[in-house]
Amino acid sequence: MFDLILHAIPVFVICLVLEAASFYFLPDDDELGYEVRDSRTSLTMGLGNVFINIGWKLVVLAAFAAVYLIAPVHLPADNPLTWVALFFADDFAYYWYHRTHHTIRIFWASHVVHHSSEYYNLSTALRQTWTPFTSLPYWLPLAFLGFSPWMILLAQSWSLLYQFFIHTERVEKLWKPIELVMNTPSHHRVHHGSNQQYLDKNYGGILIVWDRLFRSFAPEGERVRYGLTKNIETFNPARVATHEYAAILRDLRAARTWGERWGYVAKGPGWQPAPEGSLDGRPAVSVGR
């Protein structure tokens, strides 16, 4: 099975070296550049993700194939319109995958890995989860719509490939029509910001139109502060991969009711139960986000 991301690794490495060199020879006081320990952690997380996906993608492929077999139609791969439809379907699925992985804590525990760096450069793009298992349901409908499993996997890969290049401070805002439609470095810097006005914004993969449509868009204005609202203060890959799962377990042990347990797992990051006498829990306050 051809894996676009594996074949793109040499390109990633070359671009990392070039970006790091640009910070060395053309430093900018407003940009953070690279930090050796942080970048090493990001690269380790990326390699771990690649290793885990060697086995996990076989499960994903089998699930897509099973659903594809019962699909009422099978869309022809030799029709250009099939690929146009796949592009939009994949990007739409990614938007909702991404959005719910910010707003449901058990999903956030997987995705938080990608937001744990306080730097923003191409190495940050490689800081990926070691628990990718919650993404599968979001793309299963594409198989039922008649897209072949290999086509869905390819679409996921080209989305990740595109998103690698928007993890940079070296590119300012682009031409306005591009900024209007496409996810750009400027839009994605906002997404990685821990500033209050930037929290949980700009979920798009390749397109930014879904954010504009579903009112989750924010433009880049104030200098972006990267990382979490409560940073984890570690470069240990194992802790980066598991710290939010550990926090959920601690909260579950301290929970007094099943309602509280449900809230700690299924509500937003930072959700806390209401004080005694109140009827409902307080909303998420972005603790750890």
Rank of each mutant, 00 (worst) to 15 (best):
Q163W: 06
A155S: 15
W150Q: 05
M151K: 07
W158R: 00
W150G: 02
L160D: 01
L136E: 05
A125C: 12
A143P: 03
T131L: 11
M151N: 09
M151H: 07
F144M: 15
A143Q: 10
L145Q: 06
L145R: 02
S157I: 01
F164M: 03
F164R: 11
W158P: 00
T124Y: 04
F133N: 11
Q156R: 13
F165L: 10
A155M: 13
G146M: 05
L154D: 01
F144L: 15
Q156H: 11
T129F: 10
Q163A: 11
A125Y: 03
L140Y: 04
Y120E: 02
F147P: 06
Q156N: 11
Y120N: 04
Y120L: 10
F147S: 06
P149L: 03
P137M: 05
L122C: 00
S159V: 14
W158E: 01
L126V: 11
W130L: 12
Q128K: 04
R127N: 10
G146T: 09
T134D: 10
A125R: 00
L136D: 05
S135N: 10
T131I: 07
S159K: 11
S159Q: 09
Q163D: 08
G146K: 05
S135L: 15
I152V: 03
F164W: 08
L122W: 06
R127V: 13
G146V: 04
Q128D: 05
S123V: 15
S135T: 15
S148P: 00
W139S: 11
I166V: 15
L136V: 15
W158S: 06
S148D: 04
Q163E: 13
L142Q: 02
S157T: 02
